[in-house]
Design a protein around this nucleic acid. Sequence first.
DNA 1: TTGAAATCCGACTTCATTTCGTATTTTTGC
DNA 2: GCAAAAATACGAAATGAAGTCGGATTTCAA
Lengths: 247, 247
Amino acid sequence: MLKKANEAGRPVETPIPWEDFLADIVNRWSGETGERKQDRSKRREQEILRAALRVFARDGISRARIGDIASEAGMPVSSIYEYYPGKEELAYAVPLSVFGRFYSEYAEAVAGKTTARERLRLYLWLAADFARRNPEWSRTLYLEIWPSVLVGETTVRHAIDDYARIIVHLIRQGEAAGEWPAGHNPYETATILNGSVNQLIITWLIYRRPRDLMKATGSVIDRAMTLLGPVEPPRPRRKPRPGTAKS
Amino acid sequence: MLKKANEAGRPVETPIPWEDFLADIVNRWSGETGERKQDRSKRREQEILRAALRVFARDGISRARIGDIASEAGMPVSSIYEYYPGKEELAYAVPLSVFGRFYSEYAEAVAGKTTARERLRLYLWLAADFARRNPEWSRTLYLEIWPSVLVGETTVRHAIDDYARIIVHLIRQGEAAGEWPAGHNPYETATILNGSVNQLIITWLIYRRPRDLMKATGSVIDRAMTLLGPVEPPRPRRKPRPGTAKS
DNA sequence: TTGAAATCCGACTTCATTTCGTATTTTTGC
DNA sequence: GCAAAAATACGAAATGAAGTCGGATTTCAA
């Protein structure tokens, strides 16, 4: 097992087993949304969240009205306040309720993968695919919540931090396993990977371009991941040359 | 002159000279903010914008109150409405008033650069540096305006579109000049470059990390730009496509 | 200087968020 | 099962910020 040195005084913690690391995160976000005692209330809370998801995605958080969410959920306005202290808190609860599903999906899908490269590729790919399949959620998360100043010390912020943590972890994992060289700052690499995929998703959400999001995602991920190092150590480097002049 | 083929029916327009292309954009955003007749009004409008910039950056757009902006600017609330139809429009006007400065700075700094690679590198670098030097502006732009759903067919959106257009243009420029091969989709390359730098800026704005933004920016840009191709093509001896450029 | 246009500003209106007291339903103790 | 207690539901009323209006004031050009 390769032993990694600390850099810049930050504990690197490579030895944490991948399964534990991931399970920890999955558990943290798959919990129930609230702490309601009665069953009826739990159902009601779900209805509020589903209604809020739709209305927020349709009108944007700032233009959305609690009244609309209430009627969409089929209950009086004041009942919303029984569950959430205000509009802002509700807006933060909405993406969280879906975040757990993303991590679960990933945990299940990644089970068969053994290399850090495969795991990382799948992770980035799934992020885009999940956003594509849950457009109302991704609209609210990527266009309104994620970059917002308002995200102070909130729970959503921790969920988003975990999102990035996984990428950094996988980069270190690949270094430790010798899948790619360890020369670069993992945070910088993660910034490039994460930023590329986010940019792709955001552009798609706003402009519906590229038309085929997942095709572009595959292509962008593959290119960005070449920054990690050679695909397969023994293989001589060959640049992708898709545009052959003639067939 | 290199003739580029259209792809996906979108006009490519490579032949547009760089200077004209850039001057066009600089002019578009360096104009005056409003169409006020009196001098006093122009000063007043500037005061509103400056006050709004501060308050929006401090409280976030949704929490900011027009009343606070008014007192910060030393005028009654209703005077704000004399200049802007509402809070949302004011929020969009704020970043625009600074956008022109960014393009001007770039136009001036890029004047000496002759290769597309240098121009592109400077552009990305300046974006981060400008954000760092104007934290109130960048906070509002990157964390609230830029990704927002609310940015429908607004003027800010066009300003942001131009931001991305420049990147794509420079990538094509480098292809045309043989600085790097032309095999890749320029939009994908632009997504990676743009996304990486944006991610870096956003992370810095929220977490103040990396501590030294510009050092990290240099490093991230250099790495991401290696995706374009070899650093120095001594002589473009073999092009992927036949019949390209000058013999 | 002077009048028309531009601008200023305090009071008022509108509308969405949030609070509150009571009614209703669910759970708990026996 | 049956109260009593706890949890939840909801209408109405309060709060507060955004936005409107029309008369007063200032600017500018002739």
